[in-house]
Amino acid sequence: MSDSIDVTTIGFTKTTAERFFARIKSAGVKKVIDVRLHNTSQLAGFAKADDLSYFLKEICGADYVHQPLLAPTDDILKAFKRDKGDWGVYQSVFLDLMGQRKIEERLRPDMFQGCCLLCSEDTPHRCHRRLVCEYLNGKWGGALSVRHL
């Protein structure tokens, strides 16, 4: 592909609502794709699905989509979070899951133009949103130009 698809990623923990929405707005995000399995947790604060959709539209002029196809399963999450699992194992299992789901066939690169992948982790280093981008880039020949906010 000659034109790269600009994609950003962001996590909502360890930040304020003001800083979170300012980063999205200044990045020119047109749509936030929520890649969390569960998007209604009381612990999410301003990032609960209904509130988040409203705030994104009002503050940033951005749309909101929940896409659990890009989320780990409950079993994978519990093994890593609750049972304090190994990151390498989590990464391997999640990459296998994306392969089984064939996400690269069910989605298209142009669906990601101007999008921001959202999850809870404050940094992308040990977060599945980064793995989603890397996996898709591997399948799509580096079509995504990824920036972590």
Rank of each mutant, 00 (worst) to 15 (best):
M1C: 15
S2M: 01
D3G: 06
D3I: 13
S4N: 01
I5P: 00
V7D: 00
V7C: 06
T8S: 14
I10F: 00
I10H: 01
F12Q: 09
T13L: 07
E18P: 04
E18W: 02
A22E: 12
R23K: 12
R23D: 15
I24L: 15
K25P: 06
S26C: 14
G28Y: 08
K30P: 00
K30T: 04
V35K: 04
R36A: 02
L37M: 08
H38Q: 06
N39F: 09
S41D: 13
A44I: 01
A47D: 03
K48E: 07
A49T: 13
D50Y: 02
K57H: 10
E58T: 15
I59W: 02
D63M: 06
H66T: 05
Q67I: 12
P68F: 10
L69M: 08
L69R: 01
L70G: 09
A71R: 14
T73V: 12
D75V: 14
I76Q: 12
K84D: 00
W87Y: 10
W87L: 12
D96R: 13
L97R: 08
G99V: 03
Q100Y: 11
R101V: 09
K102V: 10
K102P: 06
E105R: 06
R106V: 15
P109V: 06
D110S: 11
F112V: 08
F112I: 11
Q113K: 07
L117R: 00
L118C: 09
S120H: 09
D122S: 13
D122F: 15
T123P: 05
C127K: 00
R129P: 10
R130H: 10
R130L: 12
R130W: 15
L131F: 04
L131H: 00
L131M: 11
V132D: 03
C133N: 00
Y135N: 13
Y135A: 15
L136N: 04
L136P: 01
L136M: 05
G138H: 13
K139D: 11
K139H: 14
G141R: 03
G141F: 09
A143G: 06
L144A: 07
V146I: 14
H148V: 12
H148A: 14
